[in-house]
Design a protein around this nucleic acid. Sequence first.
DNA 1: TGCTAATAGTTAGTATGACAAATAAAAAAT
DNA 2: ATTTTTTATTTGTCATACTAACTATTAGCA
Lengths: 144, 144
Amino acid sequence: MTNKKFDSYSYLLDRTARRVKGYAQQKFASGDFDVTVDQWLILKSLDNDKYLKQKELAEITGKDNPTLTRIIDLLCKKGLTERVTHKDDRRSFTVHLTAAGTTKLTELSPKVNEIRMKAWENLSEQDYEQLKTILNKIYQNLES
Amino acid sequence: MTNKKFDSYSYLLDRTARRVKGYAQQKFASGDFDVTVDQWLILKSLDNDKYLKQKELAEITGKDNPTLTRIIDLLCKKGLTERVTHKDDRRSFTVHLTAAGTTKLTELSPKVNEIRMKAWENLSEQDYEQLKTILNKIYQNLES
DNA sequence: TGCTAATAGTTAGTATGACAAATAAAAAAT
DNA sequence: ATTTTTTATTTGTCATACTAACTATTAGCA
């Protein structure tokens, strides 16, 4: 297995990930969803797991702390989330959905699922499993 | 094939692409490569195809024009590329490698290949072909 | 206890990415 | 030939990454 062959996977990955995000973002914008794709990811995580610390939220979503800080800033400014000082650790905040955040989530969920499905036309469940497996292996191979 | 099943592919794609890029970027930095991963992509494209117009370079690399302009700005500031006014079209520049750019390319190529291979440990050539096929199908499904 | 190290979060700087608008030049249309 | 449209590039803005530095707080340990 030569080096040459693997020249382009990083390029393919990058451009596909960008297109997937970009496609969703366009739909988000044209549908006046009023959140970005990354903000949506945070909202969904907070729905699964109420009252996460920012640190935990960062791990779950694969964002780093500075990025997360800014996304939370934006979500709070939009009134969709709130920061509450952690009772045991004054360094921490727990973040949770406001009523408006919950409403937004309920409203958008089906629309987002529909948007996400578009990418899988003409692809099988097996393709999905293979993609998942390969991506996870790559991810683990580069574990620091 | 339910919606639920496909919940996470966008997240997986995004985080894997980021890790691949981030891993390479770290190696680039610790090896004092003095270019970013995206800048490297441009250099490599210019090596394959001398004297590309920015527009063409953008298409080949999958960047949009503003992004490309800024990357070229940085590469020119580093002395690795040059802009030359296009002889037939004064709106355009052709971009090409300087001597320093060519040297950089020769120096770094084997190191970059080595870095890129790390992701493929425990993965087969078949995995690579599958990944390529699936990513390309997704890309086409979202074609605007 | 008191010093030191680790941790949570923020801020700042640089690079990238998407999109819109501006500018200048070329091509098309009348 | 002049006007209109298109095209190539640049600039501006906002959001996202990653790094490093900084603050406040907590934890670990002599």
